[in-house]
Amino acid sequence: MSDHGQPPLFPPTRAEIESLALAALGRLPDPFRSHLFNVVLFVEEFADDQVLKEMGIDDPFGLTGLYSGRPVGEPAQTGDSPPTVHLFRRPLLDEWVETGVPLDVLITHVVVHEIGHHFGLSDLDMQVLEDMVSS
């Protein structure tokens, strides 16, 4: 995101966050990638108030990503919306600054976690998948 090792002058945009997320999705092993054709990715500034309320989260900076939809293998219902992954830019940037974790690594972590819900993976399975994508 920056040239010659210099820190960026401006925070990454939604488009830059989306680009990092799509790159992370592209590194998923094929058995997973082939089941993502109908998953829609959104990058928003924050989760909306309704989502935060439903999840019992008071601080809008407390949610970096969200998966919505039926996991792979569950039968679709008439009227189902496509599965979605939402990334929340401002909380991601806050976590990036607070932790010092490289932004691409942080976004990969959140993307793999949310996609893990699409596949019904356990936290341990998500960690194994993240290790595969990160190496």
Rank of each mutant, 00 (worst) to 15 (best):
M1P: 11
D3K: 12
G5Y: 07
L9D: 13
L9Y: 04
F10I: 10
T13H: 02
E18Q: 12
E18A: 15
L20Q: 09
A24F: 06
G26I: 05
L28K: 06
L28R: 02
R33K: 14
H35V: 00
H35G: 14
N38G: 05
L41K: 02
L41G: 09
L41H: 04
E44N: 13
D49L: 08
Q50L: 14
L52G: 06
K53R: 12
M55A: 14
I57R: 01
D59N: 14
P60M: 04
P60E: 06
G62K: 05
T64I: 08
G65V: 03
L66F: 07
Y67R: 00
S68P: 00
G69T: 10
G73D: 07
A76T: 09
A76I: 03
A76L: 14
T78N: 07
T78H: 12
G79M: 05
D80M: 06
S81V: 11
P82D: 10
P83I: 04
T84E: 12
V85E: 07
F88V: 02
P91I: 00
P91D: 00
L92P: 00
V101D: 06
L103R: 03
L103E: 10
V105I: 12
V105L: 10
I107E: 03
I107C: 05
V112K: 06
E114C: 09
G116Q: 06
G116D: 07
H117V: 04
H117D: 01
F119D: 01
G120K: 04
S122G: 09
V128I: 15
M132S: 11
M132E: 15
S134P: 00
S135W: 11
S135P: 03
